[in-house]
Design a binder for these strands. Sequence first.
DNA 1: CTGAAAGCGCTAACAG
DNA 2: CTGTTAGCGCTTTCAG
Lengths: 339, 339
Amino acid sequence: MPPSSRITIRDVAVQAGVSIATVSKVLNQRYGVAAETSARVRAVIDELGYEASLVAQSLRNHRTNVIGILVADLEPFSTELLKGAADSIRGSGFELVVYSAGGRTGDQAGWEKRYLSRLSGTLVDGAVLVTPAVVLEALHGTPVVAVDPHTGPTALPTIDSDNLRGAQLATEHLLALGHRRIALLTGRPDLQSAQLRETGYRRALAAAGVPVDEDLIRVGSYDPDISRRSARELLTGPDRPTAVFAANDLSAIATVETASALGLRVPDDLSVVGFDNIPDSMLCTPPLTTVDQPIREMGRRAITLLIELINGGEPARTHLTLDTKLVVRQSTRAVAVPS
Amino acid sequence: MPPSSRITIRDVAVQAGVSIATVSKVLNQRYGVAAETSARVRAVIDELGYEASLVAQSLRNHRTNVIGILVADLEPFSTELLKGAADSIRGSGFELVVYSAGGRTGDQAGWEKRYLSRLSGTLVDGAVLVTPAVVLEALHGTPVVAVDPHTGPTALPTIDSDNLRGAQLATEHLLALGHRRIALLTGRPDLQSAQLRETGYRRALAAAGVPVDEDLIRVGSYDPDISRRSARELLTGPDRPTAVFAANDLSAIATVETASALGLRVPDDLSVVGFDNIPDSMLCTPPLTTVDQPIREMGRRAITLLIELINGGEPARTHLTLDTKLVVRQSTRAVAVPS
DNA sequence: CTGAAAGCGCTAACAG
DNA sequence: CTGTTAGCGCTTTCAG
């Protein structure tokens, strides 16, 4: 078949009666083209609606002014992050391509490495890796920033949020309200974020001198169904908790739903705090007390850091942990403190 | 400078002691390579972590199995659409790149044409254009689908939603509740969506025999600030409306805020319906009655249609208008019908 | 079975 | 000032 009827630089050259090189010079505003020639070429470019192929340019130049954001899938977390990234890309002179593995994360070596290899060196000047699940060493020459990596510490420059402190805040809040039987719905056991959130919970309890009741710790796995099941166990058991800290917003919502189904009112009969993975504005029915994770801000910072990395030198800080804060809404309530 | 230390097919060839051509054959599972050679090459590929450059492949092959989504910016509407697109890309064998103009929509010819030209023919097999604001004729060979184009009818295959009917539904709902003084906050006058929403409003009133009071129609422009101003005018004027239909969710929220600031309670003193451009779940404080625009579904359909277009023949329908429906929440209330 | 060579669209020396 | 030439990394004939 004909190699697509795309208009190429050659078409322009022929039409304008000049060489390909001359067209290229006009395109790139290089010196050494007669004003008249230049005008003619430009006229033809307009007439034909020609635009240089990004691909061909990438292959030739080693600078593209394009930043890549690599995500496993387009879901609430990653899309929220994209909005932040878009904020800081504006006016930076860079363009943005988002590459989505389309949920096919079961691949051999992981989408992270695969896409990074396929795109870097060509097409993008640098990349942001969103919640990579495998450990990646720094790559051959292409600047990479990781956002909220699910694995532990990484050699890569990283932007993450303070999971540990967030969990402590949440638990302390419940303690301050007088709660003593505080349950925990954990996250996915294999992810560091979940481990940190559990640690924060345990530390807060320990600091308050409240013994941990392992029966009050159930797996939520960042999953609505699993969380619903665990929540039901917690709330129907003997001596049920007066409060639940859910390591994830989906778990928190599942908890509220389950409580409601069991005839328990939130916050009158049960206080709930969730760890927020999706935008604040989406958490509303019912209003949940949450730990606010600054997703958009992480997106902004990741791009800023990446651009520093691309444009040269060593940035001041190559690992940034953003603060989390507690957003108190009406889903928690004080209880009588046992004397 | 050294052209980036990217690992190329050449590195693999050298390391394996074969020619570049042979490596390529192994990569593409072509016949005519000894099993032993093939194994050796594969070993080297693994060892080096080599992945073929997407860019170089694109330039050479004219099929990339990549679909492009071109957006002016990454905001609530476009990111919501992306989620839908991701849904239907899964398992399709295509990958997804999102290209964002980064808000720089003030360009000469419009980002739409520019990016389409830069990417088509190479890099992507087809593209989805999200809310293009200029009229584009079908392009040289590359399949393109437009989503919710802001201009009128287009030669391009299109997915949009039923703005007219949605607006009628909203207005009829308010009429059915007994409202007679129903204000309209319009959208951006230059966009067809806004015009259709206004037409729907007028038709519903006409059908009910309620005369249109032009004083109750104010410009909202899909913009919070402008909407707030207009809302204030409407609500502080003499003989204020008992209900407002806002042609856009941002306008609706602005209306509720303004009402609140003026001491009017929603829905007790004022009913509000908004046309939803952002996901249902984000509209919650306060709960707004809205017209639900199926954004994710549009994303899904757009990809499905595009893939049909790419894979060959003429699809059954090349222009699809999705239904909108009214979601009634507590921000509207019946009023006494004047006898 | 393997490799040399041409070329995808473009840019950057270098000649003319 | 302009055109010829040599690749960027890869795939694909087509000889060896």
